[in-house]
């Protein structure tokens, strides 16, 4: 089985597009849409890479990222933050909380694939 990506995103059609792009590249992709329970899913079986939307229902992606970095089991998991705003403040927050990479929506498919590959090493 290929490496695993957990996609935490609440827009179903974005999930479907990213899932297609990564699966075609050999990744095993699982997704989760609820911010409130995303960390439980993530920490239960830490994936090789997490793609995390900043604005989620239930809990902010930044809060989730902070808990990921504060938890021994998930501290080293690479996290790619996605945000629809692309504001300097969001980028600073992502960096502050320890995002491994940051992309703004809308993004190019090739960029997201290249970033996930790079994060997985």
């Amino acid at each position: 089985m290929g490496k695993r990506v957990l996609l935490v995103e609440d827009e179903p059609n974005i999930i479907e597009a990213i899932r297609f792009i990564l699966q075609r590249d050999g990744w095993h992709v699982s997704s989760h849409s609820d911010g409130a329970t995303a960390f439980d899913i993530l920490s239960a079986t830490p994936p090789d890479v997490v793609i995390l939307d900043a604005m989620l229902p239930g809990r902010s992606g930044f809060d989730i990222l902070r808990e990921v970095r504060d938890t021994d089991e998930t501290r080293n998991v690479p996290v790619l933050m996605l945000t629809a705003k692309g504001q300097v403040k969001d980028r600073e927050l992502a960096e502050h909380y320890g995002a491994s990479a940051f992309m703004t929506k809308p993004f190019a498919n090739a960029d997201i694939l290249a970033t996930v590959r790079a994060l997985a090493g």
Binding site: F20, K85, A108
Partner: peptide, 27 residues
């Protein structure tokens, strides 16, 4: 502008939809 909640929500929604369209069209 950042603190205008309706504007912020609307722009987020527009950008998310545009993202889905762009990714799907590229595929």
């Amino acid at each position: 502008m950042t603190h205008d909640p309706f504007l912020s929500e609307s722009l987020h929604d527009v950008l998310s939809t545009v993202t889905a369209i762009r990714s799907t069209a590229a595929i």
